[in-house]
Design a binder for these strands. Structure first.
Length: 298
DNA sequence: ATAGAGACCTGTGTGC
DNA sequence: TGCACACAGGTCTCTA
């Protein structure tokens, strides 16, 4: 589900509730999600205080006073809901929180329930169970087998044409695949890859190497692509992400960016580029739908 | 080395 | 209404 803008939206929603609070109790409804939970998972969370909540690519990382870190990936359908002590959260501005009464009935996909000091509760639900939760042991700060091979953070300083040129040089894989590859750029998914390629006017079928000169320098198209990725992620973030089906921020508010898709899920609709007149097409690449306008994406 | 398919799960929408 | 099938925001593992 969630790509970078959605995960970051969830992080921002969870941060004011989670950070600085002690985890009082953890209730696990099953042994794991995509992978089994680590040994003594609940016991190692209980009694610790969350000291920070950061994001790397599509992963959330909560630092704990125990020295360990709690690693979370939302998979396709992972979702956090915050339950306020009395349904009237204080000092959290526009955020909406589900009330205790609303959340009284535990859903069939509520796999992890975390009670925080002060009566706050976090519920992690995940129908497809592609999500991941693990612990990073003390001293291994930020290091985990799932994090070690992640590539460039797309909103960070390393996201530039020179670095992408290095990664794309000699790559025969189509742009769609190269941008979806978390080892190259970490955080894009099916939606934002399609949207960024549209904005850059690049065909998803083009080999990644075609954006790099023989000498290894970025071509103009690659410069455009870098700007397009940055722009689409920034705008999506400002809109609170995209809600297709079940995604919502931790505050329960649905994202709004899906209303601004240029190509994603718009098969058969007219291209939105002024003067193009083309029709958005769906094309299956590596088992995933790619949406693009064959007329203006070359 | 690397591109593609299959796998992991459940829910939803579509067409017959 | 029921049923079969395609498809969904991800990514690891296996195969050519």
């Amino acid at each position: 589900m969630p790509e970078l803008p959605e995960v970051e939206t969830v992080r921002r929603g969870l941060e004011p509730v989670l950070v600085g609070r002690r985890i009082a109790r953890v209730d696990l409804a099953r042994d794991g999600l995509r992978f089994p939970f680590p040994k003594s998972f609940a016991a190692r969370l209980e009694g610790t205080t969350v000291t920070g909540l950061s994001r790397r690519a599509k992963y959330l990382i909560a630092s704990l006073s125990s020295g360990e870190s709690w690693l979370i990936h939302l998979g396709m359908t992972g979702r956090f809901t915050i339950v306020a002590p009395d349904g009237r959260p204080q000092g959290l501005g526009e955020f909406y929180y589900e009330t205790a009464a609303d959340a009284a009935a535990r859903g069939p996909h509520d796999h992890v329930v975390i009670d925080l000091d002060g009566g706050w509760r976090l519920i992690y639900a995940d129908p497809r169970r592609f999500g991941i939760m693990d612990l990073i042991v003390s001293g291994n700060e930020g290091r985990h087998v799932l994090l070690d091979h992640l590539g460039i953070e797309p909103l960070g300083n390393a996201m530039n044409a020179e670095n992408l040129a290095m990664a794309f040089a000699g790559k025969k894989a189509p742009l769609k695949a190269a941008l979806s590859d978390q080892k190259i750029i970490a955080g894009l998914g099916n939606i934002y890859v399609c949207e960024a390629l549209f904005r850059a006017g690049l065909s998803p079928l083009k080999p990644a190497s075609s954006l790099v000169t023989k000498a290894g320098a970025p071509r103009v198209g690659l410069e455009r692509l870098v700007q397009a990725i940055r722009a689409v992620l920034t705008e999506a973030l400002a809109a609170g992400g995209s809600t297709l089906r079940d995604y919502a921020g931790a505050d329960g508010v649905a994202g709004q960016f899906q209303q601004r898709f240029d190509v994603y899920d718009r098969e058969g609709s007219p291209c939105k580029r002024a003067g193009c007149g083309g029709t958005v097409r769906r094309h299956v690449q590596a088992g995933r739908s790619t949406f693009y306008c064959p007329r203006c994406q070359r």
